[in-house]
């Protein structure tokens, strides 16, 4: 669904030449979005609830070995495969190009997760638990999801809202870089850049025009809003 009625089209650029794979974004996201703690068993059983993950791929054999990192989060596709298959519109497209997920609408068919080629949708297999007083950290801006619902990266929609409200209170337009998801905000090498793709002068738009740009599974026609910049210059043989 490509109908946009808003002036914004949120997008993200991830520069793989900058990404060091450190994992700061993962924890920042977990803190920001009330993501439950997954115990060892849960992760062993494929129930990790992280919204963003760093994929590490090995290449070659010693001594010509490389490790490549690929931060993977919801790609907020313009033509999202998860949206049409949801029978209850829990997965929907918002006017600003975001893939929304309505937790209280979701019945848990998990069809969206199957149809997501990026495998970024996670399912609440159990009710989340935070031993007291860990629950005091939870942010009131983000719903704590109950069991049986799907969830995924929201591009920190609560921060976008907050930014827009602040801008409208001050009767001005939202500035480029004013709104940042937790991952982009914390990323030490600034590999993650977030902004409005509709604004040709925004930092994200400029970077998105880089010759190093590529999108994952472009052939599937999902039109992701996350644009990767190729990690370059690896002149290591192999």
């Amino acid at each position: 669904m490509n109908i946009e009625t808003s002036e914004f089209h949120w997008g993200m650029v991830i520069d793989l030449d900058r990404c060091t794979g450190c994992g700061a974004c993962v924890t920042a996201c977990q803190a920001e979005n009330n993501i439950p703690i997954s115990e060892q068993d849960g992760i062993a059983n494929g129930r990790n609830l992280h919204w963003i993950r760093i994929e590490r791929y090995w290449e070659g054999e010693f001594p010509h070995v490389r490790a490549r990192f690929l931060p993977m989060l919801c790609q907020h596709c313009d033509d999202a495969p998860c949206e049409p298959v949801c029978p209850v519109y829990a997965s929907y497209h918002n006017p600003e190009g975001l893939n929304g997920q309505v937790y209280n609408r979701c019945v848990g068919t998990r069809y969206c997760a199957n149809n997501c080629p990026y495998a970024v949708r996670v399912f609440n297999f159990f009710n989340p638990k935070w031993p007291k007083p860990l629950e005091q950290q939870l942010s009131p801006d983000v719903t704590v999801r109950s069991r049986g619902v799907m969830e995924k990266c929201s591009f920190c929609i609560q921060r976008i809202r907050r930014g827009k409200e602040q801008a409208s209170l001050e009767n001005r337009k939202l500035l480029d870089g004013e709104v940042m998801p937790a991952c982009a905000q914390t990323c030490p090498p600034q590999a993650i850049i977030f902004g409005d793709l509709n604004d040709p002068d925004s930092r994200v738009s400029k970077l998105a025009r880089s010759p190093r740009r590529f999108r994952l599974f472009e052939d599937l026609g999902t039109e992701p809003s996350v644009i990767y910049l190729k990690g370059g210059g690896h002149d290591h043989p192999g």
């Binding site: 700061a24 993962v26 803190a31 860990l134």
Partner: peptide
């Protein structure tokens, strides 16, 4: 303005059960 994962996790030290 940047922070690593360990810094982010400082909160859990405060609220550790």
């Amino acid at each position: 303005g940047k922070l690593c994962a360990r810094g982010q996790a400082m909160l859990q030290e405060l609220y550790h059960p």
